[in-house]
Design a protein around this nucleic acid. Structure first.
Length: 287
DNA sequence: CGTGGGCCTGTCTA
DNA sequence: ATAGACAGGCCCA
């Protein structure tokens, strides 16, 4: 048990789409991080946790970062101001890079409930079972387990065409004993390039992994929702040609992705990723 | 460098 | 009820 005295809004942090496998059971949230089952809740502003030590909770939920300072660094117009005011206390979770990478490879062209289902099926088939409060949880599969999995098994988890990406990426990481954490040391664009070398990892997936698990808060993932945010609220800050082209098409070419991505990073600055998460959630909730 | 089409499979909507 | 559209993109031609 414990509490914290920094600005933090647990429910929004868990519901804003950055993590997929947390579940609410009554007042408590349960989630698996690496080999631990975390149990947390927030009542009347009071944050409590169980089955895990304070240090890990602080690290996992980024309670050690100066949220006020981060938000001040990008709170530069009326729209982001509304998002920040509405969801003040949203923090980026520090996920495990391996789980994050596979999760976002699986997340392409899928809805969030479907992503959750896929990941839970994989965990049940290839992860380790743990019981807490009479509830069953499964750790995310080890790299070795997925590297040695059969195509059939992954198809049965509902991965579809993502099967070969997950298999190849897992095998490559396992065979070369690749350390994802080592990417942390590289600057943003090099780190992004390294990730995009894995099959099934394009610019969007790479930005998500950098932001949600490798500490690159300047990463600015652009998905369909962020594209809408930019078109609806920031189109006057884009080249007119680009804005026109984006509103005409629904898909995003890789060049246009990079243009929106660099707009976000230039406009919002060092912690553009935090801005992205506030904007993303605000847009989804107000539609 | 840019563009278009196909893609596994749950969910949601008409 | 059941078909059809759509989903936090990526890859290849």
């Amino acid at each position: 048990m414990g509490f914290c005295d920094v600005p933090f809004w647990l429910d929004v942090t868990l519901c804003c789409g950055q993590v997929f496998r947390w579940e609410r059971q009554g007042e408590w949230w349960y989630g698996v991080a690496r080999d631990k089952v975390l149990k947390v809740r927030q009542i009347g502003g009071r944050f409590e946790y169980a089955n895990v030590d304070a240090k890990f909770v602080e690290y996992y939920f980024s309670l050690d970062v100066d949220l006020q300072g981060i938000v001040d660094s990008f709170n530069r117009d009326a729209h982001i101001g509304k998002a920040v005011k509405e969801y003040w206390g949203l923090r980026l979770i520090r996920q495990d890079p391996w789980e994050c990478l596979i999760s976002y490879i699986c997340a392409t062209y899928k809805s969030i409930p479907a992503i959750r289902l896929m990941l839970n099926k994989m965990a049940k088939k290839f992860g380790e079972k743990t019981v807490l409060d009479g509830l069953e949880f499964y750790t995310f599969p080890e790299c070795k387990k997925l590297a040695e999995a059969s195509e059939r098994d992954l198809l049965d988890c509902g991965l579809g065409y993502r099967t070969k990406y997950v298999l190849e990426t897992s095998r490559r990481i396992w065979q070369s004993n690749f350390d994802l954490e080592s990417i942390k040391k590289q600057p943003y664009s090099e780190a992004k390039k390294a990730l995009m070398d894995f099959p099934g990892v394009g610019a969007k997936v790479a930005d998500c992994v950098l932001l949600f698990s490798l500490g690159k808060t300047e990463a600015f993932p652009v998905d369909i929702w962020v594209k809408r945010v930019i078109l609806n609220h920031y189109s006057d800050k884009l080249e007119p040609e680009l804005a026109k082209k984006l509103s005409a098409r629904d898909s995003l070419s890789s060049g246009d992705y990079e243009r929106l991505n660099s707009f976000g990073r230039n406009y919002f600055g060092l912690h553009a990723g935090y801005a992205q998460e506030y904007l993303y959630h605000y847009e989804r909730m107000t539609l």
